[in-house]
Design a protein around this nucleic acid. Structure first.
Lengths: 132, 132
DNA sequence: GATGTATTTAACCCATGAGTTAATTAACCG
DNA sequence: CGGTTAATTAACTCATGGGTTAAATACATC
């Protein structure tokens, strides 16, 4: 997969990782804190962080035995720049489409309480990744 | 991977698919035409197109026995909108970072590099996808 | 130096994704 | 109808990605 952009997009193609980024958008924090909201193991989180770091989406420091993670613009810039090319393709209509998206997101946000889900749903539910 | 954004990012995480999009940015075209630049089989291209379509990045029509592909804003909007959240994190510094990226890309590109700065980003072939 | 805490590495399992070739569907044309 | 062109489906291989548990590393403190 080699190239940087592919690596970055691949990193973003996972709801858990996007949720981590969303959390980091609020500020630097430790791996443990990052892991809290998820129903997956710490090593799994650690792997996600490695992927994000490798994609240039986060950086990691060191504070005692903690490795605080911080969101990093670099990876985002790559995507931003790539998008640039296409943005001009639908110039005007973009606004309309964006507000349409807005509506869809709103609908999704207010959808009624889920019906009884039963069935041991241990794996963190795919659709629940917040904030992406 | 269920959710839309994950699907879209995953679709973009492949250089062949991004190259296809780059080609489609120039205009609607047939599957065969799309396949030409690549050293992979037609079925492989067909699969890529299905992925792109499912990600809302292209739409497909019908013209005789051809299924012309057309780039579609929808998928891009999703990404655009997702980025929006993060864009504000580094507001001002964004411009600086982008020009920095510009420099890096220039360095990465071969090296006919004349010292004069050119404003337009050339279409340096996105995907040298795999060949056997 | 032993102990506790934070995180990563190792060694696996299993699902999925990108590719293949061969066969099939779909539309046009003589 | 039979043949040709355009594209997809089927059936398979192989590599990789996300998850696991158990063990190892790194630092702080006693």
């Amino acid at each position: 997969m080699s190239d940087r952009l592919s690596t970055t997009f691949a990193a973003l193609a996972d709801p858990t990782r996007r949720a981590i980024l969303a959390r980091l958008a609020l500020g630097e924090t430790s791996v443990q804190k990052l892991a809290e909201p998820f129903a997956i193991s710490l090593p799994a989180i650690s792997k996600h962080l490695k992927v994000l770091e490798h994609a240039g989406l986060i950086t990691r420091g060191r504070d005692a035995q903690m490795r605080p993670c911080k969101i990093d613009a670099a990876g985002f810039i790559g995507v931003e720049h790539w998008l640039e090319e296409y943005r001009k393709l639908w110039g005007q209509s973009m606004d309309k489409l964006e507000s349409h998206l807005e509506v869809m997101k709103a609908q999704q946000a207010v959808r009624p309480a889920p019906k009884k889900k039963s069935r041991s749903v241990k794996r963190q539910g795919e659709g629940n990744a917040r904030k992406d």
